Simulated assay, not measured.
Amino acid sequence: MKPIIGIGTNHLVRPSQHMSTNYVDYTQKNYVSSLVNAGALPLLLPISDPEMAAAYVERVDAILLTGGQDVSPRLYGQDPIPQNELNDWDRDQFEQGLIHAAIAAHKPILGICRGIQLINAVLGGTDYQDIPTQVPNAIGHNQFPTDWASPVHRITTTNGSLLQQIYGKQAWVNSFHHQSVRKVAPGLTVTATAADGVVEAVEDSDRHILAVQFHPEMMAATNQQAAALFTAFVNSVRDTLA
Rank of each mutant, 00 (worst) to 15 (best):
V13F: 04
V13W: 03
V13I: 15
R14K: 15
P15S: 04
S16Y: 02
S16R: 03
Q17T: 08
H18F: 09
H18Q: 08
H18W: 07
S20D: 05
T21F: 07
T21P: 00
Y23Q: 01
Y23L: 11
D25I: 00
Y26H: 11
Y26D: 10
T27Y: 12
Q28R: 15
Q28F: 12
Q28K: 14
K29W: 08
V32L: 02
S33H: 06
S34Y: 10
A38N: 12
G39N: 05
A40I: 03
L41Q: 02
L41W: 01
L43Q: 04
L43G: 01
L44D: 02
P46D: 01
P46Y: 01
P46M: 00
P50K: 11
P50Y: 07
E51L: 05
M52C: 11
A55V: 10
A55P: 01
Y56H: 07
Y56V: 01
V57W: 00
V57G: 01
E58C: 02
R59E: 12
D61S: 06
A62P: 14
A62M: 10
I63Y: 11
L65Y: 03
L65A: 03
L65H: 03
L65E: 05
G67A: 14
G67S: 12
G68H: 08
Q69H: 13
Q69R: 10
D70E: 06
D70L: 09
D70H: 05
D70P: 03
V71I: 14
V71A: 07
S72N: 14
S72L: 02
S72Q: 03
P73G: 11
R74I: 09
Y76D: 13
Y76E: 13
G77W: 03
D79Q: 14
P80G: 05
I81A: 10
P82E: 04
Q83V: 07
